[in-house]
Amino acid sequence: MIKEVFLLYIDRWQFFLKLTMEHLKISGISILIASIIGLILGIFISEYKKTSPFILGITNFVYTIPSISLLGFLIPFSGIGNTTAVITLTIYALLPMVRNTYTGIENIDPSIIESAKGMGSTPFEILCKVKLPLATTVILSGLRNMVVMTIALGGIASFIGAGGLGVAIYRGITTNNKTMTIAGSLLIALLALIFDFIIGSIDKIIKRKWRLL
């Protein structure tokens, strides 16, 4: 089976390269949007703690909705194709970013914040120069989980007419072609592992620098 998959990659390399680029595009847009919104929401609920149960509750609730159901729910509003896929992936990617940003900031030693206030730092300076730098590793952990999950979840996007490596999986299933299904699945797994390794390496570098300070 591995030999058949390898031969399929060689024979259809342009097809798989195109799908891989589409997959990275859909996942990348979703990750970028979710990172920005998730970071903002995480900071917001850490500054206004009374809002945290409500916002975290909503993100947790949405996370429990099956991805196929959410895709189907959005089709009447955004149609079939990449737009619906990006919206769905973005929604699912929010929870890790919101939760880890909030947790990272909340776990900072209060005495450090008080020291910064005592030195005359403004709330904005404390946020940018103290809270976010100290919470970076926790935020990166959430980003790492979110990236892997988004790339993996992107495989279902083909079921609503979007592109990406899910197309290979879908074709394999509908034509009873196990080799095609495995080929698409392996590439998704490989992409997830590569980006997990990259973000993990960045996290280790940051932690090493913190230990040297």
Rank of each mutant, 00 (worst) to 15 (best):
Y170S: 09
L70N: 10
I75K: 01
T51E: 11
F16M: 12
G118Y: 05
I126A: 03
A152C: 13
L212H: 08
F159S: 09
F197E: 06
I173R: 01
G38N: 07
F124E: 10
G72K: 02
L193S: 08
V148E: 00
A157N: 09
I113C: 06
I68Q: 03
M180E: 02
L153W: 11
S27F: 02
D109Y: 00
T175K: 05
I182K: 10
S201G: 04
I26V: 15
G81A: 02
L134N: 10
I58A: 15
T137A: 15
P96D: 00
M180N: 01
A85E: 07
K50P: 03
V5D: 00
L127S: 10
D11C: 03
I43C: 11
N100M: 10
T181C: 04
L187F: 11
T136R: 14
L132H: 11
E47W: 12
T88H: 09
L41R: 04
T20V: 09
I26T: 13
P53E: 13
L165W: 05
G81Y: 02
D196G: 11
I80M: 14
S201T: 13
R12F: 00
I139S: 05
L95N: 03
P76R: 13
S141Y: 03
L95D: 01
S30P: 14
H23M: 04
Y48M: 13
Q14K: 15
G28N: 07
V147D: 00
L56I: 14
L56E: 03
I31H: 01
T51C: 12
T136P: 03
L134M: 12
R99L: 15
F16P: 00
L74G: 07
K204V: 08
G166T: 05
A157L: 08
A183C: 02
L127V: 12
K50E: 15
K117C: 10
G72N: 06
G28Y: 01
R211P: 06
F159C: 08
L71G: 09
L191S: 03
G57E: 04
T181L: 09
T175Q: 06
M21Q: 05
A162K: 05
G163I: 13
L186T: 01
T90S: 08
N177K: 01
P123I: 08
